[in-house]
Simulated assay, not measured.
Amino acid sequence: MNPEIIKYWDIIKEFIKDIAIYIMPIAAVIVSLVALKRSKDSVEVKVQLSEVEQKLKEYDLALKARELEKIKEQEEKKAFVEARIVYISKNNYKLKVWNSGNEKAYNIDVTIPEEYRIIIMKQKLPFEYLEPNNSFEETVVIHMNSSSKFKIISSWENENGDKFTNEQLRSY
């Protein structure tokens, strides 16, 4: 072999050794430092994301609790009057009217449209007020031409004078 080629080859080998001994470890340290920095940044972002998710969950729970509270307030402050015809004995029926709400109902009235040919005697109607979960009965007249399926329309007011109605499809 040519001595000059060997000399260049030895120089190249020394250069490669120097790179392997000095430059590669330095490059590895630099790459490790960059990876460490990115890893630290990634952990910080994950922590911030976790905090934001926690705040969103707390906000969502607070919002749902507030909505539930509003719904309960609305439900708690409503009267709801219902009525139905109850069979007592042969040719004897009563109209039962009750307040299934949570607030007192005022000026209660119940009607059945004439087309059903059921007569409410209205001895007690209109009823001045009805406490929650209380009821009263009214006499009704049902004859052979009366429809066995009919609508009952209950109407009432709250303490502010706001008017409400409840139309129900019933049968006897």
Results as ranks from 00 to 15, higher is better:
69 E>H: 07
21 I>A: 11
108 I>A: 06
80 F>K: 04
26 I>K: 14
51 E>Y: 11
90 K>G: 04
79 A>K: 01
45 V>N: 07
80 F>T: 01
31 V>P: 00
91 N>H: 09
22 Y>I: 03
106 Y>V: 08
81 V>N: 07
102 N>K: 11
69 E>K: 13
87 Y>I: 09
72 K>T: 04
102 N>H: 13
37 K>V: 12
85 I>H: 01
71 I>K: 10
67 E>F: 09
84 R>Q: 11
87 Y>G: 08
30 I>E: 05
22 Y>C: 11
34 V>G: 07
33 L>C: 10
110 V>W: 00
85 I>E: 00
56 L>A: 11
28 A>H: 05
22 Y>R: 11
72 K>M: 10
60 D>K: 15
88 I>Q: 11
72 K>W: 01
101 G>K: 05
35 A>R: 04
67 E>R: 09
61 L>P: 00
26 I>T: 10
38 R>K: 14
73 E>T: 03
84 R>H: 01
20 A>K: 14
20 A>R: 08
107 N>A: 10
73 E>H: 05
106 Y>W: 09
60 D>V: 10
103 E>A: 15
28 A>E: 07
43 V>H: 04
99 N>Q: 07
56 L>V: 09
48 Q>Y: 06
63 L>Q: 04
20 A>S: 14
97 V>P: 00
83 A>I: 04
18 D>Y: 10
40 K>Q: 12
59 Y>S: 12
34 V>F: 13
38 R>L: 14
